[in-house]
Design a protein around this nucleic acid. Structure first.
Lengths: 338, 338
DNA sequence: CTGAAAGCGCTAACAT
DNA sequence: ATGTTAGCGCTTTCAG
């Protein structure tokens, strides 16, 4: 293995000089710097991560804790994970992947062993067992989602309330008078992740503001569940002309079911989805969508975590603004379809 | 931070004894062992990962290199990743997540800095630029997929040839005489990952063995591309009664298209899919499927990597056997549908 | 069966 | 602007 001493010898300087060239923590003459850099290049030197971590108490690694549930939309999760890795690399950090099945103890182990400098924890529940551990270990942490009591923590999330409101606003502006929300499965509500509730409340207050008639229906991810939900929805509410969908798995089956029922989109019923942008593009008609910006959330989480590591003050709560991207699935009620 | 010296003091032994209790590398009296273990518990001691890595040249971390392409089926990737994490934890290792966008240099950096002890590299292409690096650094590595020249490397993959053959066998056994293969997008073939080719060749040789008429059609993942492909397929081959699908994104649109064309499944056309099991279950009718065992591949990869780390001889090539799981989408041609 | 002590490679005072 | 050196916390000889 090539060590810092090898580089120092090769460049004719002391080890500390090499270290300082690498860290930039003190000024080095242009002469020396370039000589050292050349030696590093020639020898293919990379600092030993363990030694560096031991000496500096900085591992330059952050942990990413991901859920392994099946009721999460996996592509979102993956998009998020890759954006965290990419972001971390830009700050010269690596990412340790942790799944949830080790539970709170995993967090304890990781932090106590100084394997990582900070953690990003996804899929926070209202009453999350990891939150106490996070407070206890005092490690810089960024949570994706909000626990019931976020005091002293740094949280990021999409603004689900505003996102749902954007959907309702759009339908109301188009002139719809009675709309429905296809919500996540009841299991998601029960789990207490909060976001399903926030979407619902955003939906409901927007609906009230516009004076619309409205109905909310959670929906399981299977094709048949979607079909049943939609059929019953129209049986119960024949006047329904607009649908907001916040349920990735339901998007495609929903469109198919509407087609099967002979309801044109957007001629007979308008659809606005809260889902990843690519999902909205791969169906026909192309959906009007308020895209879930997984990548942006990941980037922001990394920014915040790096800020904390640098000792900067970071906002306790970051809500990412939703924006609506028009597609071809929402129009004024009664519009003829081509 | 709690150090090994703290534990030693608390238990009234020397640091090395604590170390040996932890590693099991020499025999310890039951007395001492339990006293030390108690101290570890009481103090909440976790060895400093960096120090351990420095002293032992073992980081107890493996790297997982994942692709970030969009043409891969993400849930498979995620299933694989989580099974690697779970498996690694069972061997007391953690997993560092690397994306491909750092390229071969990322591998070099990771290994030279002793951040990880071994790597698992996914989505190997026939002519993969990472393979030379792997040979160069001499780090224990396990590849998912086979490069053109796998000499000296350890590779694992699903047996795509056998999987395709299983599908054909099933259709042939049911009495079908003319079948088609909906293959991955051409881009996947062009990329040279090999698996698309292997499926095709498995399909074709099985077809020849059974003396069937057959046609192969790559297919882009969009809904409309699937529709066009299927329509043209039946226009060109009116006698077609069986379809093998090796294209996750095409599964749902395919079934919908068939429904739209008025072809019952399996009454008019039988469908056998090579895809993750849960995808096959969430459509109707429930698909007859040769499931892609992402989780098993992940487990095997970890086993192999751990074997290599232990200095064991491991097989250079591991092909995981496919098995067919009957569903409701394949039957004898002409069967009435309920 | 257990201790003492020499590093592992690096960083960060402390010197100059 | 650069060099010297004392650890960081652990593993692993070498001793007993």
């Amino acid at each position: 293995m090539v060590t810092i001493a090898d580089v120092a010898r090769h460049a004719g300087v002391s080890p500390s000089t090499v270290s300082y060239v690498l860290s930039g923590k003190r000024s080095i003459s242009e002469q020396t710097r370039s000589r050292v850099e050349e030696s590093i290049r020639v020898l293919g030197y990379h600092p030993h991560a363990g030694a560096r971590s031991l000496a500096s108490s900085r591992a330059n690694v952050i942990a990413l804790v991901v859920p392994i549930r099946t009721d999460m939309h996996v592509p979102i999760l993956m998009q998020f994970a890759t954006s965290v890795v990419t972001g971390a690399r830009e700050h010269d950090h690596d990412v340790l992947l942790l799944t949830n099945d080790e539970g709170p103890d995993g967090l304890r182990r990781i932090t106590r062993s100084a394997l990582v400098d900070a953690v990003i924890v996804m899929d926070i529940e209202l009453n999350d067992s990891r939150v106490p551990v996070l407070r206890e270990v005092g490690l810089p942490a960024v949570l994706i989602g909000f626990p019931a009591d976020p005091a002293g923590l740094t949280c990021v999330d999409w603004d689900f309330v505003a996102a749902a409101a954007k959907c309702v606003d759009h339908l109301a502006d188009l002139g719809h008078g009675e709309i429905g929300l296809i919500a996540p499965p009841v299991a998601v509500f029960d789990r207490g992740t909060g976001f399903a509730q926030r979407t619902t409340s955003g939906f409901e207050s927007a609906v009230a503001r516009h004076g619309l008639k409205a109905v909310v229906r959670p929906c399981d991810p299977s094709h048949s569940a979607v079909r049943d939900t939609v059929k019953r929805l129209f049986d119960d509410h024949p006047g329904l002309t607009g649908l907001v969908v916040h349920n990735e798995a339901a998007v495609a089956p929903l469109l198919e079911t509407l087609r099967g029922l002979g309801r044109r989109v957007p001629g007979d019923v308008s659809v606005v989805a809260m889902c990843p942008e690519d999902l909205a593009e791969h169906v026909s008609p192309r959906l009007t969508v308020v895209p879930i910006p997984a990548e942006e959330i990941g980037r922001r989480a990394v920014q915040l975590v790096m800020g904390k590591l640098d000792g900067a003050d970071v906002p306790a709560a970051t809500l990412i603004d939703p924006h609506l991207r028009p597609g071809e699935s929402a129009a004024a009620p009664g519009t003829a379809t081509g």
